[in-house]
Amino acid sequence: MRGMLVKDFRLLLMQKQFFVVIVAVSVFMIASGQNTSFIVTYCTAMGMFFSVSSIAYDEFENGYAFLFTLPVSRRGYVAEKYLFGILCTGITWLLSVVCCGIYEQIVRPASDPAEQVLITAISGLVLFVPLAVMIPFRLKFGADRGRIVMMIVTALLFGLIFLVAKAADSFPVLKQAVRAVNGLSGPALSGVAFVFAVLAMGISAFVSIHIVEKKQF
């Protein structure tokens, strides 16, 4: 597991110029008055995308075949991908929260830092859901096909959300559920987001293990 993490972090460091671009874009967005919670979401999403891209590196030039001759089990490989995803997403989230928090305190000293942290925590946790969706699709379909499938799935998800929103008018139960979520306090909402993220990652890891154990190289 540690060896695989070292490999992925070394591959990640190779892309350091992209991180410079992300920081530059973030600074530009702050300068143009963009909300800091949006910047946190943007940076965290980028961290998540980079973590998932490690699967494409493994796949490059039939690399999987050799990887699975190394002292790492297929389950271990999947576990490492999730850990790497959580670390990348978590680290970029934490760094962006700290940077944006400092900026907020300088520019708007009156703002409540606890409230800011809560909002960004929720936005960070929510991003584990797309991570949970992306990893099994990448493992199953590879980088190129996986991207196309992800686009289709995203379109379907938006369609589903749209339908649920429409249906909410006709079904009081749904309306009540949406109202209940909207009415939750900050800590309760982050608790719900946390449970949701853990559930999504758990189900996703289960599916990914099944995919990788079935794979032949």
Binding site: L11, F60, E61, N62, G63, F66, T69
Partner: peptide
């Protein structure tokens, strides 16, 4: 392996 090895990016 004849057709696989460490990632070419390493």
């Amino acid at each position: 392996l004849s057709d696989s090895g460490f990632s070419g990016y390493l």
